[in-house]
Design a protein around this nucleic acid. Structure first.
Lengths: 354, 354
DNA sequence: AATCCGATTTGAAAGCTTTCACTTCGACGC
DNA sequence: GCGTCGAAGTGAAAGCTTTCAAATCGGATT
């Protein structure tokens, strides 16, 4: 592969001029410019991104740290970021942390010396990342946190309106007549989980509804978690007539638990998830969910990062995306005789509970 | 951030010695080594990956080009590759092509000058990639094609046994008594689609079964494609009693079409997908599928690439992974009176078919 | 004590680009 | 015709590491 020096010779100009033509960093007279471009074309020359990065102190790389691409929520985020990166001439480096703070720090450390222009992070937990990200900032990288925020975060961020989303779903259920509302939240050390729970509580409070403590179950953001906690909820007396699952994977697990308990959704119990993944359309019944655009989350973050690369000293931005309640088949009015049923079939309930 | 020169001064040794200690490229006496390591520790020094890559003519980057991370099959592949990359000190750059050859070539061109050690490609189509990948090889990068192969591919590859997988599913259906077997294939310009179709035909032939040409429908690897083609199939006389969908997304679409047609799976019609995605477990009925490990596909490819980085001149390897037929609820013996039903409702069928 | 030898260590070059101070060139005004 | 000025172009330095030929060191050999 040719290098710049050879292009310069071929075009009969100096090294500097080639660079100026390629980067449009100075005015170059047309004949020279043409000769340079021609030499580039014939040789198929491409500038070394490494030398370039070394000299400019940054590369056209965007780094992205997420929990796990296998979780169906994250591919959208990644794709959104990659699209924006690609159309701006950047490449995306992808790192999975498995929500392991140690692994997160390892990635953070290892990535740094590639001098990425931007770094997009979905924090593994509520650990303070200031120390690690500060070194990126010093090196001139733009850091954006998304989806959830680490402790003390004061940089750019993109999140969604978790509280309102959860509140809207909750209010909807209440509007349907539900009074026995349960919620299965994600890990409460994550800010998004916290906010969803807040929204749930707010909506309940506004409706004058008391939520017994054991109607609130915390678990991991996956199917197994949802399954386990839903089983517990379904054994309670009175049994909740509706469950808000704080993400779709939890909802999926809950749906399975409901089916296994011999109950029907939505006749016996209503269920609303969170995220609005594609797979909510292929379940039976189709799952209602608080939709959020994972794609836009990623795309916005990438744009934010790229913006900051351009203009270092713009004020910090904190973008909050909207959610949208998508009602499908998994919700209905509560069975009219819930209390009676619970009282009338103590044996069955007791049996299941044992 | 400190650089090597400062470490050398701090440790009272030469630049070369620091490099040797860090890379273990020469024997260094213990006292010196200790001083170097100590200096590294106190300063928190990290070598510049850019300068390093520039000098060594390769970086610890693994590039991966896939169709679309939003397609549920690919996250597994990516995760497999990233895990292997990470545990070997490499980072993964992810590129989506949307099965667009032009975009694929753009990525290929742009990535080159980052000097990745390895390049893993799921080709967008059957276009010849030799020209593009050859330049990677010349630059010392290991190139591995996976999942499907481009025209004239003679380098390392990892694929699955598509033909056997499809054949096993087909044979299973035949064993259940099905005689009216239809298949919805993916795009036949993809080698994996071709091979799955071959397997289907082979199994049918071995059972002495004739498959009418219109029982073979080609479409894209997504839900919309499966839905559209299944609708067509369901209107045929005689209606097929079983459909082999050549991936799970197609199967999902087919399932929807079946339901919309007022039919029941598996009572009226059996359905087997391909890939064995997680979401096959959450449909109703649970979808039978030819499972393949996307994770292992990616992990193996990364390992292959890394191996070749170590030892340039090992013979080309072509690894073929096994599939596993996973039977769930979407298959059953054919209804006993198919012909009768089809004959008894000619009017309806004619109308739909027009 | 002089040599020699293997083991260490060193210093400089090379890898490729951007950037910046400086030169050159042509035109313009006087 | 000469000085001046802006625009265009140049060349060298800087950015950081690896690598290799060469230098050095310590001890063993004769």
């Amino acid at each position: 592969m040719a290098n710049m020096k050879q292009i310069a010779e071929l075009a009969g100009v100096s090294l500097g001029t080639v660079s100026h033509v390629l980067n449009d960093t100075a005015r170059v007279r047309e004949p020279l410019r043409k000769r340079v471009l021609e030499a580039v074309r014939t040789t198929g020359y491409q500038p070394s991104q490494l030398a370039r990065g070394l000299r400019r102190d940054k590369t056209n790389i965007l780094a992205m740290i997420i929990p796990d691409i296998l979780n169906p929520f994250f591919p959208g985020v990644v794709r959104g970021a990659e699209d924006v990166a690609f159309s701006n001439g950047y490449r995306l480096v992808l790192c999975n942390t498995d929500n392991d703070h140690g692994k997160e720090v390892m990635h953070l450390n290892a990535l740094r010396t590639y001098l990425p222009s931007g770094l997009i992070v979905i924090p593994s937990d509520f650990s303070d990342l200031t120390a690690q990200t500060e070194s990126y900032r010093r090196a001139g990288s733009a850091v954006v946190c998304i989806d959830r925020l680490p402790r003390n975060w004061d940089g750019d961020s993109v999140t969604i309106n978790n509280a309102d989303g959860a509140a809207s779903a909750t209010s909807y259920l209440i509007g349907l007549g539900h009074r026995h509302l349960a919620v299965i939240t994600g890990p409460l050390h994550l800010t998004n989980s916290q906010d969803r729970l807040k929204g749930f509580k707010r909506a309940a409070r506004q409706a004058g509804l008391e939520v017994p403590p054991n109607y609130l179950q915390e678990t991991t953001f996956d199917r197994a978690g949802g399954y386990a906690k839903a089983r517990i909820l379904l054994k309670m007396i009175p049994r909740p007539t509706a469950i808000l699952a704080c993400n779709d994977m939890i909802a999926l697990g809950a749906l399975l638990a409901i089916r296994e308990a011999g109950l029907h959704c939505p006749e016996d119990i209503s269920l609303i998830g969170f995220d609005g993944l594609d797979l909510t359309e292929t379940t039976t019944p189709q799952l209602s969910s608080v939709y959020q655009s994972s794609y836009q989350l990623g795309a916005t973050a990438a744009q934010l990062a790229l913006d900051r690369v351009e203009k270092k000293n713009t004020p910090v931005r904190h973008i909050i995306l909207k959610t949208e309640l998508r009602i499908r088949d998994s919700v209905a009015a509560p069975p009219s005789n819930v209390e009676v049923v619970a009282a009338a079939t103590p044996k069955k309930l007791r049996k299941v509970a044992s």
